[in-house]
């Protein structure tokens, strides 16, 4: 079966520090793919390369048959990859609803003239954006907070709003950077339901996560990074027993 995303030989360094070296993996459509590893392993760098914030020094990223390396972030969004951020980056002074509507930018067309004249096409488009955004707020359980400034929402709500905003771009692949960070157990359970629901809509998920229980329960396959290098890949059960993974997380094995 053809992969949705195939990364191969990705390298990225910053001023002599190798953040990613020869990282390669592929994601098949409809799966939930986890990216784990200790702090500083290069997970977020990989996200930034994937979403065009950094250009990779080497390697190729083929998404749905097209090369992504060298494209700008907004072009990558158009191709169907959306993301959230580890340190939530909502538009704090804008309402929750309009945060999600901003996510519609890549899928709408109205320009200056349309905005000023507000012609039939623009009105239809605006109404469509609004109803889709409201539906997404419903999905993440924030419909009641639609008119509140995003910055005033509770932490867990902000995380879910970021997911709704990313979904508004109509992605085929949704990349989530630590979606469960700072959530309590019941919120995390809710998040798991939400992610499964999103997958049920035919969206492939890639997630960075530190909550191992969530990762092991949710992901179909995992990629483990350490110091920018792939140290393991496979099903969660296999990863749990992998000696190198245990070493990376727990430090060097006790001297025997």
């Amino acid at each position: 079966m053809s992969d949705l995303l195939t990364c191969s030989g990705i390298g990225k360094s910053f001023g002599g520090i190798q953040a990613l070296a020869e990282v390669g993996f592929s994601i098949t459509p409809g799966e939930i793919y986890g990216l784990i590893g200790p702090n500083g392993a290069g997970k977020t760098t990989l996200f930034n390369v994937l979403t065009g914030i950094y250009a990779p020094d080497r390697g190729s990223l083929v998404f749905a048959g097209a090369q992504l390396a060298g494209l700008k972030p907004h072009e990558i969004v158009r191709r169907g990859i959306a993301r959230t951020f580890q340190n939530i980056r909502l538009f704090a002074n804008i309402s929750a609803l309009e945060n999600v509507m901003i996510g519609r930018h890549a899928r709408t067309r109205a320009g200056l003239l349309g905005a000023i004249l507000r012609n039939a096409a623009t009105r239809t488009e605006e109404a469509d954006s609004e109803s889709r955004a409201l539906a997404l707020l419903d999905l993440v359980g924030l419909r009641e907070r639609a008119n509140d400034a995003a910055g005033n929402l509770a932490y867990g709500d902000q995380r879910r709003l970021e997911i709704a905003r990313a979904l508004a771009t109509e992605p085929r692949l949704l990349a989530l950077d630590e979606p469960a960070a700072g959530m309590n157990a019941s919120e995390t359970r809710g998040l798991r339901e939400l992610l499964l629901e999103i997958r049920g809509r035919g969206i492939t998920l890639l997630l960075i996560e530190h909550d191992m229980r969530l990762v092991m329960n949710l992901c179909d396959r995992l990629l483990v990074l350490d110091y920018g290098v792939t140290i393991a890949e496979g099903a969660p059960a296999a990863i749990q027993g992998d000696a190198r993974v245990i070493e990376a997380y727990l430090g060097a094995p006790a001297e025997a």
Binding site: I53, F85, F91, H105, A106
Partner: peptide
């Protein structure tokens, strides 16, 4: 509000 997030929104 946030240029990087804006880029990530397309």
């Amino acid at each position: 509000e946030d240029e990087i997030a804006a880029r990530a929104m397309g």
